[in-house]
Design a protein around this nucleic acid. Structure first.
Lengths: 205, 205
DNA sequence: ATAATAAGTGGAATTAATTCCACTTACAAG
DNA sequence: CTTGTAAGTGGAATTAATTCCACTTATTAT
């Protein structure tokens, strides 16, 4: 039900199965590049799989073999940022990375997340809503959730860390961010303040 | 960009424009009934607009004139429950309706919401993810948000009530509920407890 | 080198959403 | 009643996602 080939997925499962064939890797890069160009030129509306395939000089079948579906392609498009983000909280410098007190790490996580939203909310929204379960089944969500579970367990061992992690992640949905920015007209800093407030209250010991 | 005809929308804007023509109203009912049957018989996968139209004995064009798109149809399918829910918090008996202290009303709202999710998460998930903005642009979300803004403003006049209302609503997403129930295997009562915990912490004075 | 084979490929076929529009009908005014 | 007309209708046409499969190719072992 997901991408069938072994790719350089974000951190979680790094060097799994045997490497991709050289032509396949080339096509993967060409497809992601084509998708980025189309997005830049025509917005999310211009991002059709046929157009992506045509621009990359492959058939649509190749898009599906590489990415499984539109959700897979959009995830690949945000993958390098996602990779950096995950490195940041898994092994980067504090306060985002290990070493700082858990509450500081939580706030740093929220800040970094809002930065990303401000930068790529549009694309993230496409990735998260490509199918009803796209967001929650993604490797990215799993990684963020696992990270927050571990911080939550340190801060509030009494509470339900799995639920708490979902509750912290959920207001960071890209579609909501877009709605707050564009429809409600909320400024980035107002949303950021709200996120910190939620973090502070949910994490308070 | 939304349904073009004047229907008995949930509470917000009750008896707007001139009434629907009799044949149109008949088709609306037939279509919603057909959609409910198809959902019951074949699950969300069997819910195609062509099948709905065929079962109701109309053309697909009629589905579009009546509901605008799949999101509109699914919203209509949950509309009677939504109507009751809105009556409940707008004018029903306390603690859900007016009369009880705001914090009690908030908890009652959360409880009623979880009841609904347990009952119709599948259909609500289809409605909420029919398009990337489906959830936040829906009249239902607007009504829930407005209600929570007013409670939040009473409880925490210092805070940002609009943000707070989003933060309270967001963990009640149907797709998340389904994920927690089915993938994480969380029991209904565990989720309910988590929701109350979030409400308590975000609303605490 | 060569052959065996697992991996990869392109594009036609299928399925569904959504748009369009020429035709029909309900219904209110005269 | 008749009639004007705004509203409604059905289905063909368009557009896109997704599946399928006969064919090609990179890689590995000999």
């Amino acid at each position: 039900m997901s991408g069938p080939a072994p790719r350089r997925r974000a951190l979680p499962m790094a060097g799994a199965g045997r490497p991709e064939r050289a032509d396949a890797a080339r096509n993967r890069r060409a497809l992601v590049a084509a998708a980025r160009e189309l997005l830049a030129e025509h917005g999310t509306g211009g991002l059709t799989l046929e157009a992506v395939a045509a621009r990359a000089g492959t058939g649509v079948g190749t898009v599906y073999r590489r990415f499984g579906n539109l959700a897979g392609l959009t995830h690949a498009m945000v993958d390098s940022q996602e990779y950096e983000f995950q490195r940041g909280f898994l092994e980067g410098p504090p306060p985002l990375g290990p070493g700082a007190p858990p509450l500081d790490r939580l706030h740093a996580f929220a800040d970094a997340f809002v930065d990303r939203l401000e930068d790529q909310a549009e694309l993230l929204a496409v990735a998260e809503t490509a199918s009803p379960e796209a967001r929650y089944r993604s490797g990215a969500y799993a990684a963020h959730h696992a990270h927050l579970v571990s911080l939550a367990a340190e801060l509030r061992p009494d509470a339900d860390p799995a639920y708490l992690a979902d509750a912290l992640l959920t207001p960071l949905e890209a579609a909501l961010y877009l709605h707050q920015r564009r429809v409600r007209g909320m400024a980035e800093e107002r949303i950021r303040a709200g996120v910190h407030e939620v973090v502070a209250r949910l994490a308070r010991t």
